[in-house]
């Protein structure tokens, strides 16, 4: 059952088309990456998904039914541009957000406490938000979106402003939530994160879905034309005309084969010059796919 099913949705503001006939499906219990350069229409798409705006055309279905506002109790949304009430105490803020999502004050308080322990910020619970660091505030916003135990979690750039330790804490939490059957959509510019976490992606450019599918399927559409070699000895095989975009470090080289070049022939030539420990035809990274697809327009 798809938890999110967008069918050819479009949205224009004034004369600018933000989203054009975009379709995507997110299956239950998966982690989905919504990618694209700045201004591609990711946030506009998400806003339609949570009913903040309505599409000009096309349909939004959630949990296999047309969108209704009461579904919001089963969803959480962490926007990219997010804030907290500055003069409010952290714990009060969390209770308030929990209540807005339909929780009783006592339940919200108990869960807020658990989450604060989990995210290692118990000492800040009684502080006012304005006294906290940006990273700390990020964690509180993260907790606020999860208090009501939503089935669909939508996060726009969840890890911005976090240090590597906290990024990993966030990733672990998201993986655990996925393990419990929650569906997670996140939009980010951090390709390595998407590669590590997501089961499926959709790459949006100029309001259109230009690439969509499971990570496997997306990658398999691109030829394995990138080679990683680890060797000892004469490196002269690296001057072969079939090699391009060469990046070298001592004993290691990474390059791309020109269109139609034969990897097998190159390997033979290499073994004649040097001792080869590793010769691997690797699939392109998501970052490469992103850059290839979006081209020079991406300023992400």
């Amino acid at each position: 059952m798809p938890v999110v099913d967008l069918d050819r949705i479009s949205k224009s503001y004034s004369s600018k088309a933000a989203v054009r006939e975009l379709s995507l499906r997110i299956e239950k219990g998966t982690m989905f990456g919504l990618l694209g350069p700045n201004g591609a229409g990711k946030t506009s798409t998400i806003r339609m998904m949570v009913g903040m705006t309505l599409p000009d055309s096309g349909t939004v279905r959630l949990f296999d039914e047309p969108f209704r506002r009461d579904m919001l109790a089963r969803i959480s949304y962490l926007p990219e541009e997010r804030g907290l009430y500055k003069r409010m105490k952290v714990i009060d803020q969390l209770i308030f957000m929990g209540q807005l999502h339909g929780l009783e004050a006592s339940t919200a308080k108990a869960r807020a406490r658990q989450w604060c322990e989990r995210m290692e910020i118990t000492e800040s619970m009684e502080k006012k938000t304005q006294e906290l660091s940006k990273g700390m505030q990020q964690k509180i916003q993260f907790i606020a979106t999860l208090l009501h135990d939503p089935e669909l979690i939508i996060m726009d750039e969840p890890s911005s402003g976090l240090d590597p330790v906290n990024v990993s804490l966030l990733e672990q939490t998201l993986l655990e939530l996925k393990g419990k059957g929650r569906t997670i959509l996140f939009s980010t510019h951090r390709m390595e994160q998407v590669e590590k976490l997501c089961d499926a992606i959709c790459l949006v450019d100029q309001g259109r879905a230009v690439l969509e599918g499971t990570m496997r399927a997306v990658k398999s559409r691109y030829p394995r034309d990138r080679v990683v070699v680890e060797y000892e000895g004469d490196a002269s095989f690296l001057t072969d005309p079939s090699i391009t975009e060469l990046r070298e470090s001592p004993g290691r080289a990474e390059f791309k084969l020109r269109n139609g070049a034969n990897g097998q022939a190159l390997l033979e030539s290499a073994t004649r010059h040097a001792r080869i420990f590793k010769f691997e035809l690797v699939e392109p990274s998501l970052e490469e796919i992103f850059i290839r697809t979006v081209g020079g327009r991406a300023d992400a």
Partner: peptide
């Protein structure tokens, strides 16, 4: 203030 602190966007995803 809600506009500048961007809290509205969080709120609008649950509240009319």
């Amino acid at each position: 203030e809600e506009k500048t602190s961007r809290i509205f966007e969080v709120l609008l995803s649950t509240v009319r």
